Measured scan of single mutants.
Amino acid sequence: EPLWIRPDAPSRCTWQLGRPASESPHHHTAPAKSPKILPDILKKIGDTPMVRINKIGKKFGLKCELLAKCEFFNAGGSVKDRISLRMIEDAERDGTLKPGDTIIEPTSGNTGIGLALAAAVRGYRCIIVMPEKMSSEKVDVLRALGAEIVRTPTNARFDSPESHVGVAWRLKNEIPNSHILDQYRNASNPLAHYDTTADEILQQCDGKLDMLVASVGTGGTITGIARKLKEKCPGCRIIGVDPEGSILAEPEELNQTEQTTYEVEGIGYDFIPTVLDRTVVDKWFKSNDEEAFTFARMLIAQEGLLCGGSAGSTVAVAVKAAQELQEGQRCVVILPDSVRNYMTKFLSDRWMLQKGFLKEEDLTEKKPWWWHLRVQELGLSAPLTVLPTITCGHTIEILREKGFDQAPVVDEAGVILGMVTLGNMLSSLLAGKVQPSDQVGKVIYKQFKQIRLTDTLGRLSHILEMDHFALVVHEQIQYHSTGKSSQRQMVFGVVTAIDLLNFVAAQERDQK
């Protein structure tokens, strides 16, 4: 057995438009009618409502009807409940999964919650491996369901041993009777949507819809739904939504950006999952974080739909894509998950301010006199920076000697690579993860907040409520011999709460 199987392995699926269902090699399930009293909570997966979006479509000038398939009504709160249950049931049916076995899954959280929910009911041990950027709410729900959680670096490539995929496979090879159901490759993922989600949409719309818009992560949702719609409703256009920084969209030119990270969760990847059939997507749109969270908040405030950030991405694209539809036509959007997962993220004004998705003037509360002053007023001194090749031991000596707790790590040209902190280095040394002679590049981390000289002290204040420091950066445009230009970030300084307090105190003292 291989040590790991690539999540982007070539698909062996034989589905073709027009091929009889009787030739399918898979076990198919028909939607079942729910009894009045459910035998367990797993029976509350599927049969989610279709809700008309009344205000947002009109606000953006849509002539067509805009409908939302509300997947956050599933038992675990997301569309991923469907595939989690289906993968477990299919693994039980073919004898792969037996009582007492362990389920391991690399996930952005929602599939993990679905699997942990099913594992709690069915009696399996469950280990979820997820990147650090995923919300604390997801972690809390997983723990409450009895799952064990392993976190991995957000910026690790999918084929790196440190990625959530790599760590999951390492655990599988170490733990007896453990299984990775593997949402990236498992046919049960798109089949769950082909058999149930798509049929529900067709039934709820009486077979009449002209466009379907869905955000894409593993691709199982859009693949399964689109294949069924292509068979039953061939005139329906399928629109895929991919965040900026991901590479799922086609044509490839759409993916060209210097951005590699994004805040919206559960969609987009740096590889093409095996289950994603991009041939059934008629057109791709890219979405960005700001519009995703703005539209998610709009869905909550104006439509009462308590959905997550990827739902915002989907609707932001839908109001663009559906401009081509006329009166009497219908566009369906998939709202994948609930706001429950993001209470401390985009639902929080403070978080939105820190990330730059909300401006101070958007909030009406009274601010102190210094709130709208610029960061450049602080008069920061030149920063202490270190090269990635310097040793951890030497870096600790320098920081202690100069009285700093942290320093930016830059390359020879001064471009920011990340940050090192005294606390992080000492804990890594004590844990045996690094040696004093190791290069400081081994303990770089990139989960820090950046701020510009033109940003306000109010925004800085919000950042420092949650973080010990902020890195002050400025952009530099560099022209190359080819005539092309590129933008790079340079370090201007490091600012802490002490710097802000000293500035405010000094100004008030001078005024007296």
Rank of each mutant, 00 (worst) to 15 (best):
I238Q: 00
G240N: 02
V241T: 10
P243D: 07
E244V: 10
E244P: 08
G245W: 07
G245M: 01
S246V: 00
I247A: 09
I247K: 10
I247N: 07
L248F: 04
L248K: 05
L248D: 02
L248C: 04
L248P: 01
L248Q: 04
A249C: 01
P251R: 05
P251Y: 06
E252F: 06
E253A: 11
L254Y: 08
L254S: 04
N255I: 05
T257L: 14
T257N: 14
E258L: 11
E258A: 03
E258Q: 15
E258N: 14
Q259T: 11
Q259N: 14
T260K: 10
T261M: 06
T261K: 11
Y262R: 00
Y262N: 01
V264K: 00
V264W: 00
E265C: 00
E265A: 00
E265P: 00
G266Y: 00
I267N: 00
Y269C: 00
Y269R: 02
D270R: 04
I272W: 04
I272D: 05
P273W: 06
V275G: 02
L276P: 01
D277K: 06
D277E: 08
R278I: 01
R278Y: 06
R278N: 06
T279S: 12
V280Y: 14
V281A: 09
D282E: 13
K283A: 13
W284Y: 00
W284P: 00
F285N: 07
F285V: 12
S287N: 09
S287A: 13
N288A: 15
N288E: 13
D289P: 00
D289Y: 00
E290P: 11
F293E: 00
F293M: 04
F293H: 05
T294Y: 13
A296N: 04
A296F: 06
A296V: 06
R297K: 06
R297F: 00
R297A: 01
R297N: 00
M298R: 11
M298Q: 10
L299C: 05
I300Y: 05
E303I: 01
E303C: 03
E303K: 09
E303W: 02
G304A: 01
G304H: 02
L305F: 07
L305M: 11
L305P: 02
C307P: 05
G308F: 00
G308A: 02
G309W: 00
G309T: 02
G309Y: 00
S310Q: 03
G312K: 01
S313T: 12
S313Y: 01
T314M: 15
T314S: 14
T314R: 03
T314G: 15
V317G: 10
A318M: 01
A318D: 01
A318L: 00
A318Q: 01
V319K: 04
K320D: 03
K320I: 12
A322W: 00
Q323K: 13
E324T: 10
L325E: 04
E327Y: 08
E327V: 06
E327Q: 10
G328Q: 08
G328W: 04
Q329H: 08
Q329S: 02
R330V: 13
R330N: 07
C331W: 05
V333I: 15
L335Y: 03
L335H: 00
L335I: 02
L335S: 00
L335R: 00
P336Q: 13
D337A: 04
S338G: 09
V339I: 03
R340C: 03
N341D: 02
M343F: 07
M343K: 06
K345E: 06
F346P: 03
L347H: 02
D349Y: 07
D349H: 08
R350L: 15
R350G: 15
W351S: 00
W351A: 01
L353Q: 10
Q354N: 10
Q354W: 13
K355H: 14
G356T: 07
F357I: 07
K359Y: 11
E360M: 10
E360D: 15
D362F: 14
T364I: 13
T364H: 10
T364F: 11
E365C: 14
K366W: 09
K366C: 14
K367C: 11
K367N: 15
P368V: 10
W369D: 06
W369V: 07
W370V: 10
W370N: 05
W371N: 09
W371P: 09
W371A: 09
H372P: 11
H372R: 04
L373G: 11
L373P: 11
R374S: 09
V375S: 08
Q376L: 12
Q376Y: 04
E377M: 10
L378M: 13
L378A: 12
L378R: 01
S381F: 11
A382H: 13
A382C: 04
L384Q: 08
L384P: 07
L384H: 07
T385Q: 06
T385I: 15
T385C: 10
V386C: 14
V386M: 11
V386W: 04
L387F: 15
L387P: 13
P388T: 07
P388R: 11
P388D: 03
P388L: 14
T389I: 13
T389P: 13
T391H: 15
T391P: 12
T391I: 09
C392F: 15
T395E: 02
T395A: 15
I396W: 07
E397Y: 06
E397R: 12
R400V: 14
R400D: 10
R400E: 09
K402A: 06
F404A: 05
D405Q: 07
D405G: 06
A407C: 15
A407T: 14
A407Y: 09
P408L: 03
V409M: 15
D411V: 09
E412W: 09
A413S: 14
A413W: 08
A413D: 01
G414I: 12
V415I: 13
V415Y: 15
V415D: 14
I416M: 13
L417Q: 14
G418Q: 07
V420E: 08
V420P: 00
T421P: 14
T421L: 13
L422R: 15
G423I: 03
G423W: 13
M425G: 09
L426R: 12
L426C: 15
S427K: 03
S427N: 10
S427V: 07
S428E: 12
L429F: 14
L430S: 14
L430P: 12
A431P: 07
G432L: 15
G432D: 08
V434H: 10
V434S: 02
Q435S: 13
P436D: 11
S437D: 01
D438L: 13
D438T: 08
D438P: 09
Q439K: 10
Q439L: 11
V440Y: 05
V440W: 03
G441V: 08
K442I: 14
V443M: 11
V443T: 15
V443W: 08
I444Q: 11
Y445M: 05
K446I: 07
K446E: 07
K446L: 14
F448C: 15
K449W: 15
K449G: 06
K449R: 14
K449I: 06
Q450F: 14
I451S: 03
R452V: 10
R452D: 09
R452I: 06
R452Q: 02
R452P: 01
T454H: 13
T454F: 10
L457G: 01
R459F: 14
L460D: 02
S461N: 13
I463L: 14
L464S: 04
E465V: 10
E465T: 02
E465Y: 07
M466P: 11
H468Y: 08
H468N: 15
F469T: 07
F469P: 10
A470K: 06
V472Y: 03
V473P: 07
V473D: 10
V473Q: 13
V473T: 15
H474I: 04
E475A: 06
E475Y: 07
Q476A: 09
Q476N: 13
I477S: 06
I477L: 13
Q478T: 14
Q478Y: 12
Y479V: 13
H480A: 15
T482M: 13
G483P: 12
G483A: 14
S485W: 14
S485K: 02
S486R: 14
S486G: 12
S486M: 14
S486T: 13
Q487L: 13
Q487G: 15
R488M: 15
M490T: 02
V491T: 04
V491W: 13
G493H: 14
V494F: 12
V495G: 15
T496I: 14
T496W: 02
I498D: 14
D499E: 07
D499Q: 05
L501P: 01
N502D: 15
F503H: 11
V504I: 13
A505E: 12
Q507A: 13
Q507S: 13
E508Y: 12
E508A: 13
D510G: 13
D510K: 10
D510T: 10
Q511K: 12
Q511V: 10
